[in-house]
Design a protein around this nucleic acid. Structure first.
Length: 539
DNA sequence: GCGCCTTTGAAGTGT
DNA sequence: ACACTTCAAAGGCGC
């Protein structure tokens, strides 16, 4: 769960206001309202108008209806999808973009009337930066170079989530104007071309706000239309996408970097090989943020290890203001939209399955499956370790629910893990204060596990957790309680704390905690051997 | 060469 | 409804 800074710190996280990062819906509208400058909005609108003029789709609604009516089981659809790949693959050239990601496409905002991609907006002068894309550029993994310039002609409006289904490429064309061949003509990504709207980041300006907020989004539509999407054949729709990688793993990234998609011979080879491409998950907000900021952190801290960098980035992420985070959530949302459009039949489960069972006849994937199985087995082993933490339900059983912690009794997340993996006697645990928050208002407990900064000279920006509130991600309504240590109990709690590393636990209390409960918490934490930093609101 | 580490979030499965 | 799991990126490191 994102933790957003209140920005000024004056609220000190006092308000439990949760930003309703509603994925698609009114929230977006609000975001757009706030984020776009008038000029950007005008720009975008202009683009959209041009687009709609060009597209003149017959009857988008009818098309959608028809598509929705053709819903079938996934396997069948997927097969068809894949079949379509070979049909749709035509020669295209892929230019390598330094960024291995897929191009982030301008998704017509469903909330904007007649939203669509504007080919004409290409005219906007763009500056191809020799290096150093704009931060947000890097957030948009979809390479514009992967898309066909064919003129848009299909419906552009699109409902989201509700009533929306992952359609075949023809629907996608609504966004990306797929040419008859099925190769999507996708609006080039915003990034690496339209830099002017973004302010240069200061050397330490990882937090430097983008000038026009989501203007970058508006600028997504500013792309040269001369780029022909390559038929890498990696994507069922025929749309190359960095999310699509060979089942083997990393080398595919290299292929991306090398402009793999477009080598005809490679394509031919690929077509011969019925390998099912692995479509990666769309990046979430934090991943996008990481992509953007990683280089800066590396530069600033001369760090190279991703694990350490990611720790810093994680803290910086929490230090971001809500507005700043909102940008990434918005980008991530669009990313997901795009991904959904590009790969209508894809599901995150696909990758799960690939990992768990492999795919018959695909050696590399099978290997991957083995790998994942090993990993899973390992995790399971660790979970079955008698020393591994158990939740109250498992530990005490249904017959001893009186011994359960409060959250467990309420079918919430077990807080016993707060005890550092050990499970103290429920009767002796002062954590009952946590179990039964005095106030019905959702007092939130944040348990941060921090490792000491890997590089002393590169301490993250003063992260004052009390000034940032945990924020619900756009679509997440799961729980307002985030306890990273226990969150992925099996995986994280077991693996993230190498005994050799110095760690301290940071328990952040937000919401309206009574002094008594805080004190109790502290003492409980001390008893548990935790170094607690309790932040209380003074209201 | 492969897996681990490390982060948050999305989305899947399981209960 | 909730908990739990997996995967997404990244690259150094250890085996």
């Amino acid at each position: 769960m994102p933790q957003l800074s209140s920005g000024g710190g004056d609220d000190m996280g006092a308000n439990d206001e949760m930003i309703a990062f509603k994925d698609e819906g009114e929230q977006e509208e609000k975001i757009q309202e706030n984020a776009f400058t008038e000029r950007d909005l005008a720009d975008l609108k202009s683009s959209l108008v041009n687009e709609s003029e060009i597209n003149q789709s017959p009857n988008p609604a009818a098309v959608r209806r028809g598509q929705q009516g053709e819903h079938r089981g996934f396997p069948e659809k997927h097969r068809e999808h894949l079949d379509g790949v070979s049909k749709h693959q035509d020669g295209g050239m892929y230019k390598t973009s330094g960024y291995p990601g897929y191009p982030f496409l301008m998704l017509p905002d469903p909330y904007l009337p007649n939203s669509s991609v504007s080919p004409s907006s290409n005219k906007v002068s763009v500056v191809q930066q020799s290096h150093g894309m704009h931060p947000l550029t890097s957030l948009l993994p979809y390479s514009n170079e992967h898309f066909s310039p064919s003129p848009p002609h299909l419906p552009t409006d699109m409902s989201q989530k509700t009533g929306i289904h992952r359609h075949q490429s023809q629907d996608l064309s609504g966004y990306y104007s797929l040419p008859p061949g099925g190769v999507g003509q996708i609006t080039p990504s915003m990034g690496w071309q339209s830099q002017p709207v973004y302010p240069a980041l200061s050397p330490c300006g990882y937090r430097q706000p983008y000038s026009s907020n989501l203007s970058s989004v508006a600028s997504y539509s500013r792309f040269p239309h001369s780029l022909m999407m390559g038929p890498s054949g990696m994507h069922p729709t025929g749309i190359p996408h960095p999310a699509i990688v060979p089942p083997t793993g990393k080398q595919e990234h290299d292929q991306y970097d090398r402009g793999m998609y477009m080598k005809p011979h490679v394509e031919a080879k690929r077509e011969k090989e019925p390998k099912k491409p692995v479509i990666k998950k769309p990046l979430n907000a934090f991943m996008l943020y990481m992509k953007e900021m990683r280089a800066k952190v590396i530069a600033e801290c001369t760090l190279k290890e991703s694990a350490a960098i990611n720790q810093i980035l994680g803290r910086r992420w929490h230090a971001l203001t809500r507005e700043e985070q909102a940008k990434y959530y918005e980008l991530a949302r669009k990313e997901r939209q795009l991904h959904m459009q590009l790969y209508p039949t894809w599901s995150a489960r696909d990758n799960y399955e690939a990992g768990l069972s492999g795919v018959a006849g695909e050696k590399s994937k099978a290997d991957w499956g083995k790998k994942k199985r090993r990993k899973r087995e390992k995790l399971q082993d660790s979970n079955t370790d008698p020393g591994s933490p158990k939740k109250c339900r498992a530990r005490f059983g249904l017959n001893q629910q009186t011994d359960w912690c409060g959250p467990c009794r309420r079918k919430k997340k077990c807080i016993r893990y707060l005890q550092g993996g050990g499970c103290p006697s429920p009767t002796s645990s002062d954590l009952s204060a946590i179990d039964s928050p005095p106030s019905p208002s959702p007092a939130r407990h944040r348990l941060y596990q921090h490792q000491l900064p890997p590089s002393p000279g590169c301490s993250p920006p003063p992260t004052s957790p009390s000034t940032h509130l945990p924020l619900s991600p756009p679509t997440h309504t799961r729980s307002h309680t985030r306890l990273p240590l226990q969150q992925s109990a099996g995986k994280r709690a077991d693996l993230r704390q190498p005994a050799t590393k110095h760690t301290y636990t940071h328990l952040e209390l937000t919401g309206k905690q009574t002094h008594g409960s805080t004190t109790t918490l502290l003492s409980a934490a001390k008893a548990a051997g935790l170094s607690l930093k309790v932040l209380t609101e003074s209201q």
